[in-house]
Simulated scan of single mutants.
Amino acid sequence: MLMFWFLVIALVVVVGAVTLAVLGHGEGAALPEAPPERLTDPLPADRPVRRADIEALRFPQTLRGYRMGDVDEALARLAAELAEREARIADLESALASRPARIAEEGERP
């Protein structure tokens, strides 16, 4: 019976020691907060986005996937650039479509 109580007390001491070791020896000293991972190589702001920029774009992963702010920022930038390019393409296509008519008009004039 004495051996049983000795083992119970030893078990409680070992569990308590392990708990204190894991929690920082009971001093309340917590580990320093790690800074959240940020997008280290964002899309360039000084020039238009290129295919290589998008292929190189990697978002840091978090507990539930990716940081929503980083993804939203990249998608907004890509949407703005695509809208700008689509407008430019439409302007060029309309200028190209009107060009044969202008050439025909100029050719008819003496």
Rank of each mutant, 00 (worst) to 15 (best):
L2P: 02
A101K: 10
P36M: 02
R51P: 04
F6D: 04
E81D: 15
D46N: 09
L78Y: 03
R51W: 07
L82H: 11
E37R: 15
I54T: 12
V15E: 06
A83G: 14
R38H: 08
P42T: 03
P44H: 05
P100S: 12
A101F: 07
V13Y: 04
A45M: 06
D91Y: 06
V18I: 15
A104T: 05
E106K: 12
T19H: 01
A76I: 06
T40E: 14
G28N: 10
E73Y: 02
L31Y: 03
L82M: 13
P48M: 09
L96G: 08
L39N: 09
E81L: 06
A79V: 04
L75V: 13
A34T: 15
L11T: 12
P100H: 06
Q61N: 04
P44Q: 05
I9R: 08
P32R: 09
P42H: 03
T40A: 13
A52L: 02
A80W: 01
R47M: 11
G16F: 04
E105C: 01
G107R: 14
R77L: 09
W5C: 03
D53R: 05
A52D: 12
G24A: 04
L43A: 13
M68I: 07
E106H: 10
P100G: 07
A87Y: 00
I54F: 05
L2I: 11
R47E: 12
R77G: 09
R109W: 10
A90Q: 10
A97C: 02
G24T: 03
G69M: 03
D72E: 14
D41C: 07
D53G: 00
A21L: 13
D91F: 06
R99C: 01
I89G: 03
E84A: 15
F59L: 10
L96H: 06
P35H: 05
G24C: 00
P110N: 08
A30R: 15
I54S: 06
A10C: 10
A17L: 14
M1E: 10
V49I: 15
L92D: 00
A80Q: 11
D46V: 00
V14R: 07
R77Y: 00
Y66C: 00
A10R: 08
R51H: 09
R38C: 04
L78I: 15
F59H: 11
E84L: 15
A87R: 05
V8C: 14
I9L: 14
E81N: 09
E108I: 02
A45S: 04
R88D: 04
L20H: 08
A101N: 04
V15L: 15
P48H: 01
R67Y: 03
R99S: 12
L82R: 14
A52I: 10
E27W: 09
S94L: 11
D53M: 08
A104R: 15
L82F: 06
A45I: 02
D41Y: 03
D72G: 06
I89E: 07
R99V: 01
V14T: 14
P44M: 03
A90M: 05
P100A: 11
A56V: 02
L92W: 00
R77S: 07
R88H: 11
A10D: 08
